[in-house]
C-alpha cells in the first residue's frame, strides 16, 4: 500500500474479486433490508393506520416470548454441543494412527446428506413408537405412544438432535481440514519434546485452530437463531400445531403470510438482525479473527508504534 503507483491496479483487482459477493450482498442483503425498513410502518390488520408503533405490537405478541424461550433453549444446547463434539471428534480423527481414517471420514459425511427437510421425515419415523425400527427398545422403556415423544415440550431436544446429527459430520470434516494445515514441523518438535497425544491435541493443535473454532461458533449461532425448516415442516405436515410459531423465523413467516402483516414481520426480522449484527461486529473488531498476520492497517501500525514508545518511556 505504500507505493502510490501500484495502488490503482491493486484496487481494481480487489473490486473485481469482491464484486460477485458485493452483488449478492446488495440484492439479497442490503436491498431486502431497505425494503424491510420501508415495510415496517405500512398499514396492516393490526396496525390499520400504519406507523412505527408496530414494533411495540410485535414485542407484545403472545407468541414472541415462547418463541424466544424455544430458540434460546435450542441454542443453549445446540451450540456448545456442536463445538465440543466437533472439536473432540476432529482431534481424535487427526491422531495419525488410525489406518481406516479415510472410511471414518466418509462415515461422518453420510449423515450430512440427510438435510433438514428430509431429516424431519426420517426422525418422525424413527421416533414414532408404532412405526420405528427401534420400537422394541422404546416399548422396553415404556414408550408406546407418539404423544410421549412428540410434544411441544420435547421439541427442543428433538430438534437439537436432528440438527446436530445432520450438521456435525460436515463440521468435523472442515475442522479436520483445518488440523491438516498445521505445519508438520511444529508437531514433530512437540513430539520430540515428549508431548503425549492428548497434550498434542489440547496444548498444540487446539490453540492453532482456535480461529476456525470461533468461526464455526459464529456460523452455528447464526444458523440456530434462524431455525425454521424443521419445526415448520413438523408443524405443517407431521403433527399439525405441534410447532405453531415455535421459532422466531416461523413467527415472522406466519405474521407475513398467515396474517398478511408484512409490517410486523419486517419489524421482527429487523429485531432478529440486531443480535447477529452485534455478534458479527464483536467478532470482527474485538477479536483477532480477521486480523491478517502479514498486513496491518497504517492506523494500527501507528497505534502499535505509539504503544511501544509509551512502554519504552
Amino acid at each position: 500500500m505504500s507505493h502510490g503507483r501500484r495502488q490503482k491496479p491493486k484496487n481494481l483487482l480487489m473490486i473485481l474479486m469482491l464484486s460477485p459477493y458485493l452483488l449478492l450482498l446488495f440484492f439479497f442483503g442490503v436491498l431486502p433490508l431497505i425494503m424491510a425498513i420501508f415495510n415496517v410502518p405500512t398499514k396492516s390488520p393490526s396496525n390499520p393506520n400504519g406507523g412505527w408503533h408496530v414494533i411495540k405490537i410485535v414485542l407484545h405478541d403472545f407468541r414472541l416470548v415462547p418463541a424466544a424461550w424455544h430458540v434460546l433453549g435450542f441454542m443453549a444446547l445446540f451450540v456448545p454441543l456442536m463445538i465440543f463434539f466437533v472439536v473432540a471428534m476432529s482431534l481424535m480423527l487427526d491422531t495419525d494412527t488410525a489406518p481406516w481414517k479415510k472410511w471414518v471420514r466418509l462415515a461422518y459425511i453420510v449423515p450430512a446428506c440427510i438435510s433438514g427437510s428430509v431429516a424431519v421425515l426420517l426422525w418422525y419415523v424413527l421416533l414414532e413408537p408404532t412405526l420405528s425400527p427401534f420400537k422394541g427398545v422404546m416399548h422396553f422403556f415404556g414408550i408406546t405412544q407418539a404423544s410421549q415423544i412428540w410434544k411441544t415440550s420435547n421439541l427442543t431436544y428433538i430438534l437439537v438432535f436432528m440438527a446436530f446429527l445432520s450438521l456435525a459430520g460436515q463440521w468435523i470434516l472442515i475442522q479436520f481440514g483445518s488440523l491438516q494445515s498445521i505445519s508438520g514441523e511444529i508437531l514433530e518438535a512437540a513430539r520430540v519434546d515428549g508431548c503425549t497425544q492428548f497434550q498434542l491435541a489440547t496444548k498444540i493443535k487446539l490453540p492453532l485452530i482456535r480461529k476456525y473454532v470461533i468461526y464455526m461458533g459464529v456460523l452455528v449461532f447464526a444458523g440456530g437463531l434462524q431455525i425454521f425448516v424443521e419445526p415448520q415442516l413438523l408443524n405443517s405436515s407431521v403433527y399439525h400445531g405441534i410447532a405453531q410459531q415455535w421459532s422466531f423465523d416461523q413467527l415472522s413467516y406466519s405474521l407475513a403470510f398467515d396474517n398478511g402483516n408484512f409490517g410486523e414481520a419486517s419489524a421482527l426480522s429487523l429485531m432478529l438482525l440486531v443480535p447477529s449484527l452485534i455478534g458479527a461486529l464483536l467478532v470482527i473488531f474485538k477479536t483477532d479473527m480477521f486480523e491478517d498476520v502479514n498486513f496491518k492497517s497504517p492506523k494500527k501500525l501507528a497505534k502499535e508504534a505509539k504503544k511501544r514508545e509509551a512502554a519504552a518511556a
Binding site: 390488520p45 404423544s147 410434544k151 411441544t152 415440550s153 408443524n235 403433527y239 399439525h240 400445531g241 405441534i242 405453531q244 410459531q245 406466519s254 398467515d258 396474517n259
Partner: peptide, 19 residues
C-alpha cells in the same frame, strides 16, 4: 375468522388434553 383457528387446536388443545 382472521386467525388460524384450526392450527390452534394443535398448538394448545392437543398439548393440554394429552398431558
Amino acid at each position: 375468522v382472521r386467525y388460524d383457528a384450526n392450527g390452534a387446536w394443535g398448538a394448545s388443545w392437543d398439548t393440554e388434553i394429552k398431558q
